[in-house]
Simulated assay, not measured.
Amino acid sequence: MMDAMPQITSSPVDTAGRDTPTETTDDRISLLSTDWPVYSPFAREYFARGFAEGFATGLAEGREEGRAAGLAAALMTALYARRIDVPDDLRARISACTDPAQLHTWLTRVLAIPVLDEVFRG
């Protein structure tokens, strides 16, 4: 069974003498719900376009976060393999870093530079 479209009722009269449409709280909630059917072709097009753009943005952000997490794990593995003791503040700095380029730079340095302080400069 299809839900009915939210009903807009007229309130008495606004200060300019025009009828003003009002919605009940339930009507507004149903408009924000993802379950309500999109009736008009215009609404369908723009709803679909907004959904697709939001999905693509979220996917790209998720991939970027995944790259950063993977590089941080690789960096910690490289430090462990080199038997380098990682202080808690540095471990927190690595975990908090969300820039894959910076993490890649640190990973490259940790494989080439023997001194820990030089790896994480700048």
Results as ranks from 00 to 15, higher is better:
T34R: 09
T108G: 11
D14Q: 08
Y46D: 01
Y46H: 15
F120L: 00
A52M: 11
A60V: 03
R82M: 07
A78Q: 15
W106T: 00
L107V: 03
M1Y: 07
V38K: 15
E118C: 02
P21M: 02
H104W: 05
W36D: 05
A101E: 11
A56R: 14
M1I: 06
M1G: 13
L32P: 00
R18E: 10
R93V: 01
M76N: 05
M2C: 02
A92R: 13
V86E: 05
R91A: 15
R28V: 12
T20H: 12
A96M: 03
R63K: 15
G122L: 05
F51I: 04
L79R: 07
A101M: 02
L32Q: 04
A16F: 08
A72L: 00
F47Q: 13
A74I: 00
E64H: 14
D35N: 11
T77N: 14
P100S: 09
G50T: 05
S30K: 12
E65S: 12
S11Q: 10
P100H: 08
A4Q: 12
T105N: 04
E23H: 08
D14W: 09
F55V: 11
V13W: 05
R49W: 09
R82F: 09
Q7N: 12
A68N: 05
R18C: 06
F47A: 14
A112P: 02
P21I: 02
R49V: 14
A74Y: 03
L107I: 00
R121Y: 00
